[in-house]
Computed example of a mutant assay.
Amino acid sequence: MPRRTATLLASLLTLIALLCAGVLIPVPYAEMSPGLTVNTLGKHEGETVLQIDGEKTYPTSGHLNMTTVQVTNSEYKMNLFESMYGWLSHDRLVVPRKMLYPDDKSADEVNQENAEEFSQSQEAAKVAALRQLKKRKLLDVKLGSHIVVGSVVKGGPAEGNLHAGDAIKAVDGKAVHNPSDVAKLVSQHKPGEKTVFTVIPAERVAAAEKRGKEPKGAKNVTLATMKAPEEERAIIGIEAAVDYTFPFDIDIRVEHVGGPSAGLMFSLGIIDKLTPGDLNGGEFVAGTGTIDETGKVGPIGGIAMKTVGARNKGATYFLTPEANCATASRDIPDGLTLIKVGDLDDAMDALRKIREKKTDQLPSCPKS
């Protein structure tokens, strides 16, 4: 065989081997891309996203869209060619697989955490929205709250004695006003000593809330404390939380979404529906960001994919958590203005400027 032919054949076989390797050999990466974009003022899969019952609501227009990121599932094995395409693509983001699916958690555990975070974000969004309405004197609302057992640790002293949803009125006869009070009072004991919880069972709390009454029927539960796994302090194996009693029903209906990043847009959607006029000035506003009960907006992941998804749907403004501004501004989709927000007040003020056509005053994320 002539040397030139042999060289060409060897090169061809090498290329084929590389192609096979690129297709067959998995790499430890996963892919993120623009996901679902839902108008909180409208419908999703035939259902109204924000359903409010028991309080007057007003017509809305324009958009206040929540945004999401789509990720490859836990079973998907990305190959070398796919990862290279993702790295070069404008609307794809390749990340280490461990970032989405840690080795110490199963896919089911990750999905469960995402579902819990989504549920918690909805509650925080409702609280933040109602507090904002009251603060700005847009709606006189009364928001009740009480300290509850948020979760019970399996195998701990509280298991079988306290239950998620039980209202905690006092510990050792001392009233509790926030979740940290519970841990503080328990930790005053030495491990093994007994503590007395004054609680109202969850079912009585739920029944009272349905009647719009304060829950009654407190009882004392005596528990032996135990030593914390990594600290020399007493615990009983619960996580205390705050439960709120809303003056009317607010139901958020969005299926197949997880994580806490829609909190800000849910709050704004609730406020818009409960106030006359258009909060967004009829414009297409999208955004993202976690929110807590005080209205503080927190950072999220996949910001670049969310801005792309929002712009693809037609958004011209994007409410961006302050902590994500630098990353988001590295590659701003054409026609999209990024607006920096640190809390719900910032978001409300930004929407006012959009309504009043004072967009030159918006606190924009500058292009890098």
Rank of each mutant, 00 (worst) to 15 (best):
G160C: 02
L362S: 08
A208I: 07
T60F: 03
T72D: 08
Y58L: 08
E193I: 06
N220L: 04
G86R: 10
T72K: 12
R233Y: 07
K190W: 04
D181S: 12
T37C: 04
P59N: 10
Q112A: 09
Q120L: 11
V221A: 12
V148R: 10
M84G: 04
S368D: 12
K227D: 03
S83C: 09
A206C: 06
L264Q: 13
M305E: 12
A218L: 07
L274A: 05
G144H: 11
K126D: 00
E117A: 14
A323W: 07
V297I: 13
D292F: 02
V110T: 08
L264I: 09
T195R: 01
G335M: 07
C365N: 13
S119C: 06
A262G: 08
Q112N: 11
V186S: 04
A286C: 12
M32A: 15
L268M: 11
G309F: 01
E356C: 07
T316A: 10
L9P: 01
K353F: 01
A107R: 15
A304R: 15
L143M: 02
V254S: 00
D243N: 12
C365P: 05
A208H: 11
V171D: 01
G35F: 14
D91N: 15
S368Y: 11
F246I: 00
E55Q: 14
A241M: 15
